[in-house]
């Protein structure tokens, strides 16, 4: 195989490697628990993180006029109030498993990014099966 070709391939791979490394640095978001989030205090304000938890019973409030959704999620380490602006997802209901991506604010509320709300169906199937 031609030497020029191999050099070209190395250049391409190098460029790709650069993109991958900077890409991973720029777009990886860490999962942390509610407890960890609260313990970090001001250091975490404004930083994008992901928190997973269950939607707390009777905590969902939806204002259709301003399209603002507030609810709480809870994991083993505590409860976290969450605010989200956007369409109310169909799968949001008490007990649903939620993953929120956004920032913790000094007011103690977690502000979810646009499209940063991911939901899984509550494990109704599993419960019935057991």
């Amino acid at each position: 195989m031609n030497k020029g070709l191999v050099i070209g391939a190395i250049v391409i791979l190098g460029a790709l490697l650069y993109l991958v490394i900077t890409g991973l640095g720029g777009s990886s978001v860490y999962y942390i628990t509610v407890g960890e989030l609260k313990a970090k205090g001001p250091a975490i304000y404004g930083k994008t993180v992901r928190v997973a938890g269950k939607v707390v019973e009777n905590s969902i409030q939806w204002d259709p006029q301003t399209l603002t959704l507030t609810f709480e999620i809870a994991d083993d380490s505590g409860k976290l109030p969450v605010v989200y602006h956007g369409p109310r997802p169909d799968m949001l209901k008490d007990g649903a498993e939620a993953v929120v991506e956004g920032q913790y604010t000094p007011e103690g509320v977690f502000k979810v990014n646009p499209k940063g709300l991911l939901l899984k169906c509550p494990s109704k199937y599993q419960e019935k099966n057991q």
Partner: peptide, 16 residues
């Protein structure tokens, strides 16, 4: 610690 990647990773790497 578990991390996840958001869409911008693919925009930066796959798209070029």
């Amino acid at each position: 610690q578990e991390a996840s990647i958001d869409v911008s990773f693919y925009h930066q790497t796959f798209m070029p």
